[in-house]
Design a protein around this nucleic acid. Structure first.
Lengths: 196, 196
DNA sequence: GTCTATATTGCGATAGAC
DNA sequence: GTCTATCGCAATATAGAC
């Protein structure tokens, strides 16, 4: 196995384990066994368990950067918000572990929180705020709405839906086929909630 | 120290530690030291670290039961939803650790998740759904809204706001004095979003 | 580059003295 | 009821053979 294969394999194997059990919930023995490698390989390739975790986290949160692209699209602000919701759903579908790292770091932060997680989430919030202000300036949104409260409400609707999946799986159809309906429902509520 | 004092002290000390570091992030030695007791007291009074954690979790999630009372209030459904948001804010103010256990168990569940956390959250969702159906039957809410999507959106708005506090603390005024404004903003958006 | 073997530290739990 | 001492095991990390 080449250098890079080992690194890739270790990260691929570590991602679901860290996501489902948390940093302290996984041991290097478990990681190495799952990767079919000797436990010393983790120190050899990454410098230790914490460095491997940081590498996984960086990879996961890099996908949040796509949100920045939405700002430049040739759409009206509501269209951009819809794009945000849709891309968030797609992101969680393509990467089922991101939300776990997201909330795990928010509630039980590791040293990587300040360095990786906080800046990544902040960037998303800044972009959403800019989109909101754009719509406000264009007279599309009601006066009196607090920009931050409003975009946090929007982000909360979609993120909380996925966060509660372990509780709602027997109450809600979580099949991806229903994603489009969900997006429409949320945009429906949000649009009537904020438009003039 | 009496029997009961020891139990109470241990739980009081364990609550912030488990909340901030997670179950695996805290050791019995750390717990005992923080409580000013010998580490063997944890096994003596609770039967082990996991049983202490379960006791803390039960105590925390018992506070969610108040939501059930909202259903019986003499208010219209929108008033009950406002009451839900307001009581959620108050609950997090009175108990700053609940949300940590909440999301920590959702993302990195322990054996207590099925027994304590899932039923408690479900009960809240069921009550919110009943309130929604009540409003739908009374013709106060638009047709075509999915009950579960709608109440998850409502719950998401307020819960996500507090969940993101570690990220937004330099961008948002999180002082309790602003809670009333926040509640009004969210109810404003939600009401226009779902009312006929 | 990959292994074995081990150093070192910490873990949760408990036996037994008082 | 509270303590000390310790058991047995797992943790991360690394030295050194190949």
């Amino acid at each position: 196995m080449s250098d890079n294969d080992c690194r890739v394999t270790l990260m691929a194997v570590a991602t679901p384990l860290f996501a489902e059990k948390g940093f302290h919930g996984v041991s290097v023995r478990e990681l190495a066994k799952a990767a079919g490698m000797n436990l010393s390989m983790i120190s050899y390739y990454f410098g230790g368990k914490e460095a491997l975790y940081a590498a996984v986290l960086s990879q996961q949160f890099a996908t949040l950067g796509q949100v920045t692209d939405i700002k430049a699209l040739a759409m009206d602000p509501l269209g951009k918000f819809e794009r945000y919701i849709r891309s968030t759903v797609e992101r969680y579908r393509k990467n089922p572990y991101l939300l776990r790292f997201y909330t795990s770091e928010l509630t039980n932060p590791t040293p990587s929180f300040q360095l990786i997680v906080k800046p990544a989430i902040r960037e998303v919030l800044v972009v959403l705020q800019e989109i909101f202000n754009e719509g406000l300036a264009a007279g599309q949104f009601r006066q009196g709405l607090d920009p931050m409260d409003t975009i946090l409400a929007l982000a909360g609707m979609i993120n909380f839906y996925f966060l509660l999946e372990p509780v709602t799986q027997e109450m809600v159809n979580h099949a991806p086929q229903r994603d489009e309906v969900l997006v429409n429902h949320l945009m429906d509520i949000f649009t009537r909630g904020v438009a003039v």
